[in-house]
Design a protein around this nucleic acid. Structure first.
Lengths: 116, 116
DNA sequence: CGAATACTTGCATGAATGTGCAAGCATGCA
DNA sequence: TGCATGCTTGCACATTCATGCAAGTATTCG
């Protein structure tokens, strides 16, 4: 392991990045649909608005949003009796950037030490 | 095979990137263990070698590797009666890089048009 | 040939999970 | 206060899925 660089995170070891939570939250078509909906929206969306787009019952969408919130992918803003969800784009981008760099280093390491 | 997406297009729409296959393949702890094992290895590993590291039956590991291969995360090299699996680091890094860029653009767009 | 090794696959089982319905909270409004 | 609205949660059900065992396939060796 030659992780010595300092960038997005000082020490992004692949082992720490390979945690199932984020990937689990993205492993469902409905949740991805929710994510895409939020990515297009110009302002935080209510559960009802999101549910209107995916053909899933409101309660299911609510559960999906809870899962995405658990994974740190979306944030919730309670406003009166409605809850508006918004995508944490910067956080997601940072997570993927870390992963890209870690696997990039992995590729570089393997290119440097080719299999005999 | 998921040869639907052509390549690393400079303009990668988020909708195309949010495809469950890759995330599904990474949503399991055992598969992540396999992935990490392959990332550390200096040369392609046999199914038996990989199975020795994760506490899962050989047949299960074989199935996991098949899933990872379907997702384009690993490649298989048949050598005689053994099959050596290797991580496609460059491909994975590129996929995550695309995602990071797409969500980065998303974040930038939202910063530009803040919710009123 | 037959036997051994390496891996894959069919089958059964238990656990996890996505879904809808209905009930339960919480908040706003008349 | 009563009622409507928005969301969450308990429950039941169906599906998916990870796992182990056993059988099957492929390849090498004697």
């Amino acid at each position: 392991m030659t992780a010595k660089r300092t960038r997005c995170t000082p020490e992004s070891a692949l082992l720490d990045l390979l945690e199932p939570t984020l990937f689990k939250s993205l492993a469902d078509p409905t949740r991805l649909q929710v994510l895409y909906r939020l990515s297009c929206a110009t302002k935080p969306q209510t559960v009802t608005e999101i549910a209107d787009c995916c053909g899933v019952h409101l309660s299911g969408v609510s559960r999906h949003l809870a899962a995405l919130r658990e994974a740190g992918v979306v944030q919730a803003q309670k406003q009166g009796r409605e809850v508006r969800y918004l995508l944490d784009c910067a956080r997601i981008a940072a997570a993927f950037e870390e992963l890209a760099e870690a696997f990039g280093r992995c590729a570089a390491a393997k290119a440097e030490h080719p299999p005999s």
